[in-house]
Amino acid sequence: MKKIDCRGLSCPEPVIMTKRALKEDSEVAVTVDSRVPMENISRFARALGIEPVIVESDGEWTLTLKK
């Protein structure tokens, strides 16, 4: 599983990084610290037919996407 850290990055960078990571690995865990990239990555994943598993802790979200 590929892990990417998108904390502090604003859109669209987290989505682009997620897209790139999904090309390299079938399972990706993305960490973000803001609601907007969390929503955008979720939307991007659902558009691909992937239901993201989202874990929130302490103002950060980790989304696990599995192709």
Binding site: P12, K19, R43, F44, A47
Partner: peptide
């Protein structure tokens, strides 16, 4: 900007 950008980058029309 996000509207047009999302269409170009990730084909998202939202």
């Amino acid at each position: 900007v996000g509207g047009i950008r999302d269409v170009i980058l990730v084909k998202d029309w939202t």
